[in-house]
Computed example of a mutant assay.
Amino acid sequence: MVFDDLLNVLGHGRADGELLYTTIIRSRTRQSWKNTWRFVRHRNTFSGLSINKVMFHYVAHLSGFIAGIPVERPRPVLEFKPERFEHFHTFFRDSIWVYVERIDVFAQAVSMYIAETTDIWERLPGATDTCVQSTRALPYDSALLKSYLYKFLQERRGWQRFFEYYDIDAVKITYEDAVATYPSYLFELLARAGVDARSPYPERRMLKLGDARNDRLAAQLREDVLTELYMHSLVAP
């Protein structure tokens, strides 16, 4: 959503924000990094800015690819070790770094669970409610939801260590703020980048997908985790 909001206020159409992921990690291109980056930069340059989104768990693989190591088995890397991230940071060291965080990590885990289970990742204005209705029959899968939760917590810690290690002053955006305050939540980023939004501000192109079902699942997950922690504290020596 943040990626599309940014393109929208700059006056551009929709694009693949995770082109680095789809090209290198998912498709496992055999092109060199130089040629791959030329392709990505051509596709994802808007208003003079090359705009790309990455998630922590595959950054180490991107870093290796930049160094000339083909991506073979890109299992998630959730721990920050400088030697595995150095080439990524060196190449993008002059970038404007933007850290997008969802404060409610329980809701974030539920959103990922629903998206991956239904293969529904977005909702556009004017779309039918079919995508929302298809989530209402989803069962509560405690083990899978907890796996998403712990993964997101590890990624959050990994990004903080990455930014601290390289002394990066990232623009911080919370998902909750982005949902509630479009387009003003982007003003700090626009100022940092030295670009202007088009006027008048266009209406948002992407809508919040979650509904009351998400809220109920998140509440149940939160209760389960807190109960588990409490029970563990009772038996701990």
Rank of each mutant, 00 (worst) to 15 (best):
V2Y: 00
V2I: 15
V2F: 03
F3Y: 14
L6T: 10
V9M: 07
V9H: 09
L10T: 04
G11P: 13
G13I: 01
G13W: 00
E18M: 02
L19A: 12
L20I: 00
L20V: 00
T23E: 06
I24E: 01
T29P: 15
W33A: 00
N35M: 07
T36M: 11
T36D: 09
W37M: 06
R43L: 10
S47W: 07
S50M: 01
N52C: 13
K53W: 07
M55H: 10
V59N: 01
A60D: 00
L62C: 07
G64I: 00
F65I: 03
F65Q: 03
I69S: 03
P70M: 01
P70E: 03
P70L: 04
P70Y: 01
P74Q: 11
R75T: 12
V77H: 02
E79V: 06
E79W: 10
K81L: 11
E83L: 07
E86G: 03
F88E: 00
F88T: 00
F91E: 12
F91G: 04
F91T: 07
F92R: 02
F92M: 03
S95G: 08
I96Q: 05
I96H: 06
V98H: 09
Y99H: 14
Y99N: 10
E101H: 11
I103C: 08
I103H: 08
D104Y: 02
V105L: 14
A107S: 14
A107G: 14
Q108V: 15
V110R: 12
V110D: 08
S111T: 10
Y113C: 00
Y113T: 05
I114T: 15
I114F: 15
E116W: 15
E116A: 08
T117E: 08
D119S: 13
R123H: 05
L124P: 12
A127F: 07
T130Q: 04
C131G: 15
Q133G: 00
S134G: 09
S134Q: 10
S134P: 04
A137S: 01
L144S: 02
L145V: 01
L145I: 02
Y148V: 01
Y148E: 01
L153M: 11
L153A: 06
Q160N: 10
Q160T: 02
E164D: 12
Y165T: 05
Y166R: 02
A170R: 06
A170W: 09
V171F: 09
K172T: 02
I173G: 08
A178E: 13
A178Q: 13
V179Q: 04
T181A: 00
T181F: 02
P183I: 13
S184P: 04
F187Y: 05
L189K: 08
L189C: 11
L190P: 08
A193I: 04
A193P: 13
G194W: 06
V195M: 08
R198S: 08
R198M: 15
P200N: 09
Y201D: 15
R205F: 02
M206V: 08
L207D: 01
K208C: 06
L209P: 05
L209H: 12
L209I: 06
G210A: 15
G210W: 03
R213M: 11
N214G: 14
N214H: 14
A218K: 12
A218E: 13
A219D: 11
Q220P: 09
R222E: 13
D224R: 11
D224W: 08
E228N: 04
E228H: 15
L229H: 04
M231R: 15
H232M: 13
S233E: 02
P237I: 00
P237D: 05
